[in-house]
């Protein structure tokens, strides 16, 4: 080990006292680079721990369901489960459709026409998410014998929201109409929700 005399002195000094401060605490480029690089890596490593909370592949695969409506007679309704929530599918009679089309929309909290809530060519099927837009309870009125509320549609027992037979909010605290999900008719009686 070839050490110049002054280097030897310095090393002794380095051992004896803490002269570290002048050389060490000065942040030069390499320290900043190491810290920055490490921080970027740590930040990137956090992503998988966050993303694992998002819906998993099997949950996403069930994000759409196909329903066969051939068994649902006019005037009847069914509930199907979609993304863990009920979907109400109501097969309307011509009289119900007429009533819903001719309803007076003035003064409604969330005025939507019947045409906006159903699809061209399949107007007889009213498809909506069966979750009250107030605080998430399930309104009654789909199955025979359930309370349909003051407007012959749906009634939410939690806080008394009344929906008409097109799912529009008429009375009570709910802020909007029952939500209409995305859906596509694959054939006249087959519909894919989601």
């Amino acid at each position: 080990m070839a050490t110049a005399p002054e280097a030897g002195d310095k090393s002794v000094e380095g051992v004896v006292g803490h002269t570290a401060d002048d050389g060490v605490h000065r942040r030069d480029f390499i320290y900043v680079a190491t810290a920055a690089f490490g921080s970027v890596g740590a930040a990137a490593a956090i992503w998988p721990f966050v993303d694992q909370m998002n819906p998993s592949a099997d949950v996403l695969a069930l994000a759409s369901v196909e329903v066969n409506l051939s068994q649902v007679a006019p005037g009847q309704g069914i509930k199907v489960s979609w993304r863990g929530k009920p979907v109400f599918i109501q097969h309307l009679t011509p009289e119900q459709m007429a009533e819903a089309q001719n309803a007076d929309l003035s003064g409604l909290r969330d005025a939507q026409t019947f045409e906006e809530r159903t699809q061209e060519g399949h107007r007889q099927y009213l498809i909506q998410v069966g979750v009250c837009t107030h605080l998430g309870c399930i309104p009654s009125g789909t199955a025979a014998g359930e309370v349909k509320g003051d407007f012959n549609g749906w009634f939410c027992p939690c806080h008394g929201s009344h929906y008409d037979n097109a799912g529009r909010i008429r009375k009570g605290p709910a802020p909007t109409n029952l939500e209409v999900p995305e859906y596509t008719f694959l054939s006249d009686t087959n519909v894919r929700i989601g």
Partner: peptide, 17 residues
């Protein structure tokens, strides 16, 4: 990262025996 950390480590220790 390990390379950078090594250089930084040697720098920090440069004045220490």
């Amino acid at each position: 990262f390990t390379g950078l950390a090594y250089i930084a480590y040697r720098r920090v220790w440069a004045d220490q025996k």
